[in-house]
């Protein structure tokens, strides 16, 4: 495989991946169109670099397809009942799920982080400086309390991390699903 062909294949591979990220229907057909264009440009004596530069970056080309075809969907169907129902059910499902997941993870993360953090501080004070009679460590020695505080704090970090992952997933999914509404007014 020559360097030029490899560059062309790399471009098409990135383009196909960008189309799939945008959840474009018939991504392979669209890639075949662009592959045909590159072959025609080569047969016409243009260099691969010229052909790829004219097409723009794979991501920009994929976005151009997404905008154009989203416009076609809206032009053809407007706010069809199916589109509306799908987006509404998605939004309702995500909201209900978030109603359970977000408060639960927030409470768990906050509780474990505060408990672990304070246990560590008080156990350290008791161990190194002075006895704190008003602090109840459930009959644990300061050293045991110090050891126990670390996994508790770590568990809080894990809950916080899971919460972050969930929110990020939600944001990416919503942006992708509702991308159908981001339409260029000009054609």
């Amino acid at each position: 495989m020559t360097a030029g062909v490899a560059d062309g294949e790399a471009y098409l591979s990135k383009f196909g991946a960008a189309l799939r990220r945008l959840r474009m229907a018939d991504a392979s057909g669209i890639v075949a169109d662009v592959r045909g264009h590159i072959a025609e440009a080569a047969a016409d004596g243009r260099s691969l670099e010229q052909a790829l530069t004219a097409l723009g970056s794979p991501e920009a080309l994929a976005r151009a397809y997404a905008v154009e075809l989203a416009h076609a969907r809206l032009t053809n169907n407007g706010w069809s009942f199916l589109t509306f129902a799908r987006l509404a059910s998605l939004l309702a499902g995500a909201s209900l799920m978030s109603l359970l997941v977000v408060p639960s993870l927030t409470i768990l993360a906050f509780t474990f982080l505060v408990t672990g953090g304070l246990s560590f501080v008080f156990a350290l004070i008791e161990l190194l400086i002075v006895d704190l009679p008003f602090i109840q460590n459930d009959h644990l020695s300061p050293l045991q309390a110090l050891g126990a505080s670390v996994p508790i704090f770590a568990a809080g970090c894990v809950f916080l991390w899971v919460l972050w992952l969930y929110l990020r997933y939600l944001a990416v999914s919503m942006r992708r699903e509702f991308s159908v509404l981001r339409v260029s007014p000009a054609n």
């Binding site: 169109d33 004219a54 080309l61 154009e68 416009h71 054609n187």
Partner: peptide
């Protein structure tokens, strides 16, 4: 119009 305009438009006209 550039390739990055023409090809998406042709695909749209086909879909329509």
């Amino acid at each position: 119009a550039g390739e990055n305009t023409v090809y998406p438009l042709l695909r749209r006209l086909r879909n329509e």
